[in-house]
Nucleic acid binder design. Structure first.
Lengths: 211, 211, 211, 211
DNA sequence: GATGAATGAGAATTCATTCAT
DNA sequence: TATGAATGAATTCTCATTCAT
């Protein structure tokens, strides 16, 4: 049993080591895919970025496409978090907070999301499996939230699904430059201002009250 | 002089023929670039789609990249039209009309725009030269329009530039699925409903008045 | 008969025009072949240099190789002249004169000779048909001349064929830089000095007499 | 330390293997370049001659031109040797020996030299970098040698540089057919006869003494 | 597991030649 | 005859993947 315990520990350690290496490769791949696009990236470049020999990649991923799918998979977490937050909004202040947090994309995940979104643009499988499913989840939660508020009279008689879609669009407009790598991520102050503006626009519109 | 007239006409005809051919090639290229992405498209595929020998492409475009740049260039017209319209809004009804028209992307141009946007995602030159410049123009016109309305008291004290960005985002949310080829372009009725919803959300917000 | 005479004249003129055009094409081809080598020259370049459409070349030459063979053919004249001169040497002054004249390669023929020699270096047919045959003729005349002089006691008991070969080599050493286009052709004064040096070296050797 | 020693040895062996392979490729390339000329040779032919896949060539040379430059570089040794020998001549017998040795081009190097010389004919960079520099070195050594002999009265008052050039030409005349692949390299007996003839012609001229 | 040389299918591009006008 | 667009075979070079070490 002691021997077994030891070998189990060894196996665990090895698996950890392997998993860690896998993550390093994915991070390297995401960085380069995000920069040059999947199709224009060579496995040699990925290997170099991950500080590995080319052949070693194939001990971790069956082929180049698996690498892409794994990167797209890893883009999941931030969108998941956004979806979770969306369903727990209670009041105006809560809404601002949620928007504010959603604007705080963790920098290391940027490359994953950028890769996924860029590929979704031309790759139907990526689009269906990742973008549609995950954005769909966010959209459904937002729609449900809006439907409730319309029912309880807080919101006007608006189309909840369309409104949810437009809200996602506003988000996109704000996050896109950062995702594209054109501007640095907004800092905490900027996020608060953006969040308040978005929520203000969304709740109150832009007309002067009474006009 | 008759002879000259004739040779001139011949030259003209040839130039027309050449220009027509160029357009056919561009349309074919845009279609395939949009579908598979620039990097994943082969010149062989473009030639086949344009019903030409591979070598013939190079009588019209110096290389594959020139083909991409020409496609991106041709994506200009719809965005130009949108920018023009944005600067001629007078009242709420006018705003609805403009939004409605902007949602009517001419189907044959879809492939050009999709190609351009997909490449802007990974190609800095395309991003700068086409996407940034043209979206920038629309953004500036919108910002100017909002600034005026804030000045004359029609709109609340909001940040015009940020608001313009959010408006563009709402647009994007509505147009994106069509650009991506995921949904057919909205018909006239759908466009009117979308336009009124967007304008309503934008002007009035989603809160019940008085809340 | 008058009519026939007229048509004959027309035919003659046309043939002259055609022949002139052929020569223009050959001169253009020789110039570019000489500069870049036959294999690296495109028919498009030749056509452009001859101020013609590509297709028109093929009204004058069956294909690119015929063009090369025609250029090689035209390289004949200067070598023919050299061979003629070589057989008419009478005395030391005559020898100097002949050498001097042989050093005066007509500039426009340079391109033809350079092309021929460059191709002979890799093309067996050109080597046999042009270089070997023509250099061979010169070599035979020189050998015959030397043989005579050995027989009449003017020259020492040397190997006439080998000596002729060495003489041709001395020539080559002097003409090569010009043929290659590395130095301008020698002017009259330089030619005289070179001729006297060559003849002096050849006849007297380099040892101080009596040593 | 044992492990290190082993890995060092492995690395050494690999480097040796790579270097050997490089040389094989160069030899194959030189052979075909010499036969057909650089421009007319395809990388496919080189690969086939080296018994390799086409792609493998590019693990050893960045592109076709690098292959040519490497071949030209390898043509250096024989010319270097000739230059060395040229500066160590002492007397007539020594001169004959040097000439004799210079006529003994190692057969495997023939293809390298033929390639280099053929390309120098149309490629300015090859001409400058290889032919001019190396022939120039030989020429300078010969010139210096002749200048000394003129100074000490052994040689007549001749132009040393021109004489050196003519001597190189005599060499060329003798070696050219072999370099071109038209005749087999001379054997030892032939080399001695040639050397004595050349030296005899050079030192004594062809006139009967006293004439 | 790690390495990196070898592979060969496939990519972009060129170019001699043809042929309708 | 002159033109130059069209052709497609051939060329150079790349790159995902394999495999012996």
């Amino acid at each position: 049993m002691a021997a077994e315990g030891r070998s189990e520990r060894f196996i665990k350690r090895r698996q950890n080591r392997i998993e860690r290496r896998r993550q390093e490769i994915l991070a390297a791949a995401a960085r380069i895919f995000a920069e040059k696009g999947y199709a224009a990236t060579t496995t040699r470049e990925v290997a170099a970025a991950a500080d590995l020999a080319e052949g070693t990649l194939y001990n971790y991923f069956a082929n180049k496409r698996e690498l892409l799918l794994a990167v797209a998979s890893e883009a999941e977490a931030p969108m998941e978090a956004a979806a979770m937050a969306a369903s727990q909004i209670r009041d105006r202040a809560g809404l601002v907070t949620v928007v504010e947090q959603a604007l705080d994309l963790p920098a290391p995940r940027l490359a994953f999301m950028r890769t996924m979104l860029a590929e979704a643009w031309v790759d139907d499988h990526i689009l269906e499996e990742f973008a549609v499913i995950r954005l769909g989840r966010i959209h459904r939660r937002l729609t449900a939230f809006i439907t409730e508020r319309v029912a309880d009279g807080t919101f006007r008689q608006i189309d909840p699904a369309l409104t949810a879609q437009l809200v996602i669009g506003m988000f996109g407009a704000v996050l896109l430059p950062t995702l594209r790598g054109a501007t640095p991520p907004p800092d905490a102050d900027q996020r608060r201002i953006l969040a308040e503006s978005i929520v203000g626009l969304l709740l109150d519109g832009i007309l002067t009250r009474g006009s």
